[in-house]
Design a protein around this nucleic acid. Sequence first.
DNA 1: CAATATCATTGATATTTAACAATAAAACTA
DNA 2: TAGTTTTATTGTTAAATATCAATGATATTG
Lengths: 229, 229
Amino acid sequence: MSKISKPNNCISCPYKWKYLNLLKDDDIISIQNSCTIINFKKGETICKQGTDATHALYLAKGTVKLYIEGKKNLILKLIKAGEYIDLQTLFGDKSYKYSVAAMDDTMVCMINSDMLRSLAKENPKYLFELTKSISNSSNYVYKKVSDISRKQLRGRLADTILYLKNEIFNSDEFDIGMTRKELAELSSMSMENAVRILSEFKKDEILSIEGKKFKILQPSILQKLSDIG
Amino acid sequence: MSKISKPNNCISCPYKWKYLNLLKDDDIISIQNSCTIINFKKGETICKQGTDATHALYLAKGTVKLYIEGKKNLILKLIKAGEYIDLQTLFGDKSYKYSVAAMDDTMVCMINSDMLRSLAKENPKYLFELTKSISNSSNYVYKKVSDISRKQLRGRLADTILYLKNEIFNSDEFDIGMTRKELAELSSMSMENAVRILSEFKKDEILSIEGKKFKILQPSILQKLSDIG
DNA sequence: CAATATCATTGATATTTAACAATAAAACTA
DNA sequence: TAGTTTTATTGTTAAATATCAATGATATTG
């Protein structure tokens, strides 16, 4: 199960948010005192769609998936360490519009929402960075909805592989760290179709696949598939 | 063509944003001096996907559609008077991720981005409201992407009709003010299928349709269709 | 007001995608 | 390590959806 603890020193924490020091030291201490650190193991749920947010979630270590639940799940994005998992629930409607689960062992700092909001109100520079972050994450979803609604299977799977390459692993070679089902949920398609298209990509030597180890052999073709849709 | 003018008095303007007065009068005057008012006619483009934003766009009068262009367009939402059309481009990446066009005769206030950003930085209460607005509009898109990826034709069209009822016209009876093609683009489907399903709804007496005049006869069935997906 | 263009409607057909099914491979567990 | 469950793969079939085509209705324009 998830392990709970308290932070020692946020100011000198190596995992702190890069804009944390826009706050005064006193304010950082307030955050530290209100903060609870929770360690999650792979697969554990960090927050649940439909419930109300009482804390802001900062991802200090690990990677999580943010997904919308239903008959079939849709993974909207992966979030890497160093970012707030969810900010629009802090400033907008309080109920989570999605669930979040750990993709590997993660460390999450939970900060009381009311406290963080009032700190933000008094520290416009900090708030400004939070707002930039929400804006860019919003832009990402706009792109996602457009891709999903317009592209078909091949284009969508190419999108996902390029996303892993460019945004998550920053490399042409990586262990996807997820099942085929999750890869499909990230591409909004059935698992069988994801597997089938992966086989095609392999046969066409666009990709080399060894279980969960992917190596992109022809990124330009993937890009073209993504562009064509 | 679009008609350009300057504002007389933002402070007493009946169309002003409801949180404008969180700014000091001096700041409002700064906005007023930098502001250009543009009147658009139905169909005219207000901003174009791919270009860089130099101004924040406030919709004082009229209704606009925000849509992503491609081989087929996807209308993400309609925006009514009294809201900023676009805020994430003010705080996030500067390039428009979508186009915006007038659905009827509209009045748009264009405010220099740099100026508004620096005002926001010095007026946390104002910035806070902008952030709330971005957050909620982001939440809307999360719902949209989930609906589009999961529901099928009937569910999606029911969504759209309920959206018009609840969010746009606040009535069971309204003139949709758009073509069947736009209705389809708002529901992410082909125009023919939108028409076909409308005919079904009419036959099943869920809806009464007279050209562009819709009357919802059985909202509960629409809701059920939306829920089933 | 006739001519023209746009929009709406319906049917037929083709394409895309998911669901189902059977088996193989891999990972986990006692 | 044998047994069990989960995950991956491929083929087959069914369902969902888009496209094409033909026609009628409505709006627009000179």
